[in-house]
């Protein structure tokens, strides 16, 4: 049971990451490979604030979101000068930069040693204290955040704003002719998405009670990107499905009887093969409404 709860929490966290990245990649057509940076900023904000100051989890989450949004604003400004493949490459560069900061700013992040001992959140309503120290209560908390972020994203993509995002993806110059300063739209969605990823980071840090840079390396951004390409670009349910598959797949492969000395490698191979086959025969992913 604990095992299922663990998977449930990971699923909720990756749903947040997938849904938020889908806003940028699927709806707006900006191939961002830097989501793990904002995920990491949220995680480190919570880790550092909870272990070194007296402030609570939810305050640390809000501060993390503000920090991630501010940094993403600056990154978004630079990225707005790139298009298509170059956008992907430049965004990847930012992920590497943020990762090196996590790794090398040792006074703040303890570098590769990581930060242990991050506490679980408490909520205080008047005189009633509630602690999320059990995994089950933490599962409920992450699901609440995942649902909230899903609903906010749904509101965004169904609004006039969301329609303009899609038009930017289809033909940015053409939508400019109709009076839209697309820079503002691209920045707004990039910043919103980064804030959401930061929420996932805070939840992750407090759940695992330990953060180190390796969780926010470039491969993590690629992993999140894989979630939405697999589940379907420009479809929010696709991001949820993608997160479910990517969390469950390694677990399912665990039950396939590979010899124990090569099991880990074989899982990676099967995992890679499934992705290749999917891209060959179903490039839109399972529920995708847009193909890169």
């Amino acid at each position: 049971m604990e095992y299922l709860i663990h998977l449930g929490i990971l699923f909720a966290i990756y749903t947040i990451l997938g849904v938020s990245l889908n806003l940028v990649v699927g709806y707006t057509g900006l191939l961002s490979v830097t989501q793990a940076a904002f995920y990491g900023i949220g995680a480190y904000a919570t880790a550092i604030l909870l272990t070194q100051t007296g402030i609570g989890f939810f305050t640390s989450m809000i501060l993390g979101v503000i920090l991630a949004m501010s940094i993403s604003f600056l990154i978004g400004l630079v990225l707005s000068r790139f298009r298509d493949d170059y956008y992907a490459l430049a965004s990847l560069g930012f992920n590497v930069i943020v990762f090196s900061i996590f790794l090398n700013w040792q006074d703040l992040t303890r570098g590769p040693l990581g930060i242990p001992g991050i506490s679980k959140p408490d909520l205080r309503f008047f005189n009633y204290d509630f602690s999320f120290s059990s995994n089950f209560s933490y599962l409920i908390l992450t699901i609440i955040f995942a649902v909230l972020i899903y609903l906010v994203s749904k509101f965004i993509v169904n609004s006039s704003f969301g329609r303009v995002l899609k038009a930017i993806r289809e033909d940015e110059k053409a939508i400019q002719v109709f009076g839209y300063n697309t820079l503002y739209y691209k920045l707004a969605i990039f910043v919103i998405s980064a804030g959401m990823a930061s929420v996932a980071g805070s939840l992750f840090a407090s759940y695992i009670t330990f953060v180190d840079p390796s969780s926010f390396y470039l491969m993590e951004s690629v992993f999140i990107l894989t979630i939405i390409i697999l589940g379907g670009l420009a479809n929010l349910r696709g991001a949820v499905l993608g997160a479910l598959i990517m969390i469950l797949l390694p677990e399912i492969l665990r039950f396939v009887g590979f010899p124990s000395d090569i099991a880990a490698q074989m899982r990676q191979v099967v995992y890679g093969l499934i992705l290749i086959l999917l891209m060959l025969y179903r490039p839109k992913g399972f529920l995708g409404e847009y193909e890169i």
Partner: peptide, 20 residues
Amino acid sequence: LFEQMTVLDNILVVLTERNV
């Protein structure tokens, strides 16, 4: 056109508010 958008959305997108 905005290819992977519906015909209706292709029109609505030029009618709606410009400000974010």
